[in-house]
């Protein structure tokens, strides 16, 4: 145990503007969470609005949920590695986060399995489909259900506030702020 550090008092609410937000997003942690937010929102759009939007969702599913999902997996791996090798381990890995990570892992595996069902992943990693195929039948169900379970979990257990809503909140806050500044 090192000596107690002086913790500088944080300003609340912090100074937030688009520049700081973008700067912040460029860092790994917020980027990770941004991707997650996009995946969540697009996932919810597909599941909730699918019957109305139909084919319009093709690019959202393919690019925003699909390719960004693949990117998310890579970022997730880097993120985990970074967390493990940084000293923040203890602060990051709260009980809630443990569960959250579990959710992420489940969503990643089921997402990948579903996506592998025909082609893209098989080309890159042959054998993956075979490894995952026994669960392929269940993965869409798990993927969808776990998403909602996670949402419930996130809302019921504070500390892991609903990430998507948090982003929306952030944006609306920024909007309000810029409006105030203009007036």
């Amino acid at each position: 145990m090192t000596g107690q550090k002086e913790i500088s008092e944080k300003k609340y609410p912090p100074d937030v503007n688009y520049r700081t937000v973008l700067k912040g997003l460029a860092r790994l942690d917020p980027f990770f969470h941004l991707l997650m937010a996009i995946l969540l929102i697009t996932g919810l759009m597909i599941d909730l609005l699918g019957p109305w939007l139909g084919g319009w969702l093709w690019s959202i599913r393919t690019i925003a949920h699909g390719y960004l999902g693949a990117l998310f997996i890579l970022v997730f791996i880097v993120y985990i590695v970074q967390v493990i090798y940084s000293k923040k381990m203890r602060t990051v890995l709260t009980a809630t986060n443990y569960v959250d990570f579990l959710f992420y892992i489940i969503l990643i595996i089921t997402g990948m399995t579903t996506a592998s069902a025909n082609k893209p992943w098989i080309d890159v990693i042959p054998g993956l489909f075979h490894a995952l195929s026994p669960i392929a039948e269940f993965t869409p169900a798990i993927h969808t259900a776990v998403t909602y379970v996670w949402i419930v979990f996130s809302t019921v257990f504070p500390g892991g506030i609903l990430h998507g809503i948090a982003s929306v909140y952030l944006i609306s806050h920024l909007k309000k702020k810029s409006k105030m500044e203009r007036s």
């Binding site: 909730l48 109305w52 809503i165 909140y169 609306s172």
Partner: peptide, 22 residues
């Protein structure tokens, strides 16, 4: 915030109910 949450809740309930119907 309250309005927002309410709206989200109402919209989601309505959406999957209607979605199922269709």
């Amino acid at each position: 915030r309250r309005e927002f949450v309410k709206a989200v809740g109402a919209a989601s309930v309505a959406s999957f109910a209607l979605g199922d119907l269709i």
